[in-house]
């Protein structure tokens, strides 16, 4: 049962990824389950060039972004983000890792040029679309894309070691 093994190995990470965008675990699970069902439906015609996991992350990403953009207003989305109504069964080590990562992210964001940081925070934290950011800051969407591109490059370099450690913790668990 290859499909079942795939499900066992990626369902939770995909849900966490979708959660990072949707800020609602029920919605995240809904998106991921639909992706698995779609994968089954298209199994005979699908042609994946990269890894299946990578493919699934991309589909979950796109579907999650679509859900965010379909929501009635961002207040509803940000309310879920800020209210923090959820169950938590994280271990102590996970909690420490999160705090350290949090600090690392804060430090990394401070290294970004001001406008680049502003654009990135509006996109990733407040989940505004690029066109909304462009409108708010009175810049073009191309400029927004350039800022995001720059931010991702710089943050990947700044947080590379930390990400590797987090990945190792995940693997060893």
């Amino acid at each position: 049962m290859v499909y079942e093994q795939l499900f066992d190995s990626v369902y939770e990470p995909l849900c966490r990824y979708a959660y990072s965008i949707l800020r609602d675990m029920d919605e995240a699970e809904d998106v991921v389950q639909k992706v698995f069902c779609k994968l089954w439906d298209q199994r005979e015609t699908l042609s994946i060039q990269s890894s299946i996991k990578s493919y699934l992350y991309r589909i979950v990403h796109n579907d999650s972004i679509n859900v965010v953009h379909q929501q009635i207003n961002h207040k509803e989305h940000n309310f879920k983000y800020s209210s923090g109504l959820h169950d938590s069964e994280e271990s102590v080590s996970d909690h420490i890792a999160v705090s350290e990562l949090q600090q690392a992210i804060v430090n990394a964001l401070e290294t970004l040029p001001p406008q680049c940081r502003k654009v990135f925070e509006l996109s990733r934290m407040e989940q505004l679309s690029y066109s909304e950011i462009a409108s708010q800051l009175n810049i073009s969407t191309n400029t927004v894309e350039n800022h995001i591109s720059k931010a991702l490059k710089l943050l990947r370099i700044e947080l590379k070691e930390f990400l590797l450690v987090c990945l190792l913790i995940q693997i060893l668990k």
Partner: peptide, 14 residues
């Protein structure tokens, strides 16, 4: 991308 969005939260389990 995932961590930048949820680093300051505890993630619920699916």
């Amino acid at each position: 991308y995932a961590k930048l969005g949820i680093a300051d939260e505890e993630i619920p389990r699916p």
